[in-house]
């Protein structure tokens, strides 16, 4: 190659940029892209987990999926769980953020304490809640009995609809702090003048909330809902550890179904098919999220 003319600055810089990202891209391809593609590939096989012996079945798994009661049952459970826990997280999270935005005593301590469940291991959260929910010795039943709200100990995790309600509640408890963090950060960035101007214009506290706070929160709430919807949709640990999908399959979501197919029923091909179906749903979510954030960046 000739040395003149010298390579342009832009080209030299681009080369540095590519060198910097190269290790990441390599790791990405090896541990994410390759497994993703093989998941799709595996979904075309029938594989027995212990021996890993596979047999090509084409799209049979997909036709089986559409006809499978388990799949639709899990899809419905996923929907109920996601919508239920997300709504609670949202309402509770926004309310908590508004409270924590008030001037209260030990404000920063209160803020930190509220965030704690979010950073706790799901394993710890589940252990604690299973102990609280314990039908014989759990404190929850005792408190409710003393308060006269129930007359006999409730079986929280072994019956429907209690089991679904329980995981939705625990999910809300564990994840609402995320909503608090984001909303609180946004609340603090609303200029005080807006409220002062509204007060001068004669708006009361409620009007100030609906006319200023809510519109200012709207964009950030849309993003929070999307992110939380994605994360709740794919939740595995919490539900698996709380109920294991039971009683029977009453709280089995798609994530749990994938796990069960692959490692209990030893049907890896079928499990991959379920996983690919989940991936497609999430792809849709992600696209909506991207559109939304791009819109926010432009706006």
């Amino acid at each position: 190659m000739h040395s003149d003319p010298p390579p342009s600055l832009e080209k030299r810089y681009a080369r540095i940029g590519v060198v910097l990202i190269a290790p990441t891209v390599l790791v990405f391809c090896a541990v994410i892209l390759y497994p993703l593609i093989s998941a799709i590939y595996l979904s075309l096989f029938s594989i027995y987990t212990p021996t890993l012996a596979g047999e090509w079945v084409g799209v049979d798994n997909y036709t089986a999926l559409l006809a499978s009661g388990d799949f639709w049952n899990a899809a419905l459970n996923t929907l109920i769980w996601t919508v239920g826990t997300l709504m609670l997280q949202l309402v509770f999270g926004v309310a908590m953020a508004l409270l924590l935005n008030q001037s209260i005593v030990f404000q920063s301590l209160a803020r930190s304490l509220v965030l704690f469940p979010y950073f706790l291991s799901t394993v710890v959260a589940v252990l604690v809640w299973r102990w609280l929910f314990n039908d014989l010795y759990g404190i929850l039943n005792h408190v409710l009995l003393i308060a006269g709200l129930i007359d006999a100990p409730v079986n929280w995790l072994g019956q429907m609809p209690n089991a679904m309600i329980s995981i939705i509640l625990v999910g809300a408890w564990k994840y609402f702090p995320f909503v608090v963090i984001v909303v609180l950060a946004r609340l603090q960035s609303i200029p005080e003048q807006l409220y002062e101007a509204a007060t001068i214009d004669g708006a009361g506290p409620f009007q100030r909330f609906t006319d200023i706070t809510l519109p200012q929160l709207r964009d950030v709430l849309v993003v929070v809902v999307l992110l939380r919807a994605i994360w709740d949709f794919k939740e595995f640990d919490l539900i698996y550890l709380m109920t294991g999908g039971g009683p029977v399959r009453a709280t089995q979501t798609l994530s749990l179904l994938v796990y069960e197919e692959a490692f209990r029923l030893n049907r890896m091909g079928m499990a991959s098919t379920y996983a690919v179906a989940m991936m497609l749903v999430l792809l849709g979510f992600t696209l909506v999220y991207l559109r939304q954030t791009n819109r926010l960046e432009e706006g």
């Binding site: 390579p7 342009s8 600055l9 030299r12």
Partner: peptide, 11 residues
């Protein structure tokens, strides 16, 4: 150019 040196691609 700066002086008699073309600097287009000089960092």
């Amino acid at each position: 150019r700066i002086g008699d040196r073309v600097v287009n691609s000089v960092p």
